[in-house]
């Protein structure tokens, strides 16, 4: 069994996304409830709690639990925070793979590998280019990186 782990930089990306949502929430709250002090405090407290929950608890746990494995004729994904999952797709069922990266992923040198199978799919996020290439070799299916 060959194991792959997402790079630590994916945690930074998730935290940056959470911060972006928090910023949007801050603007929305200021716009909608700026004139109502009690509602403003309540909603501000709410988005701060949610943001801190994601930043400090959810994202690190998700990162620590995420693991990809190839072996025994299948590809496995282990992860999940509240709903913990192990998802497996037989290698023989994989029709093609694709690697894609958002601008944020490209900035940190990461990508997501999507495995398309008949009746299912798997998304392996937070992999470096080298890991994606190594995975591709193991699967013996060429990826088509989309830049």
């Amino acid at each position: 069994m060959v194991d792959f782990y997402p790079h630590r930089r994916i945690l930074t990306i998730w935290r940056m996304v959470a911060a972006a949502f928090a910023l949007a929430a801050a603007f929305a709250v200021a716009l909608l409830f700026g004139q109502h002090p009690l509602l403003f405090r309540l909603t501000t407290g709410l988005w701060v709690v949610v943001f801190l929950g994601f930043f400090v608890i959810y994202c690190p746990i998700k990162y620590n639990r995420l693991k990809y494995s190839v072996g025994n004729g299948q590809v496995l994904l282990r992860g999940g925070v509240l709903y913990r999952r192990v998802k497996a797709i037989p290698l023989s069922n994989i029709q093609f793979t694709a690697a894609f990266a958002s601008p944020l992923h490209r900035l940190f040198g990461l990508c997501t590998v999507a495995l398309a199978a008949a009746g299912g799919s798997l998304f392996l996020t937070g992999l470096t280019r080298e890991d994606a290439a190594r995975l591709e070799k193991l699967l013996c299916v060429p990826t088509s990186p989309q830049d």
């Binding site: 913990r84 192990v86 998802k87 037989p90 069922n93 199978a117």
Partner: peptide
């Protein structure tokens, strides 16, 4: 049969931990 299985997911919700 095993070869007809497209994917297997084992899912655990918080109440099952």
């Amino acid at each position: 049969p095993r070869e007809k299985i497209a994917s297997v997911t084992v899912e655990q919700n918080p109440f099952q931990w």
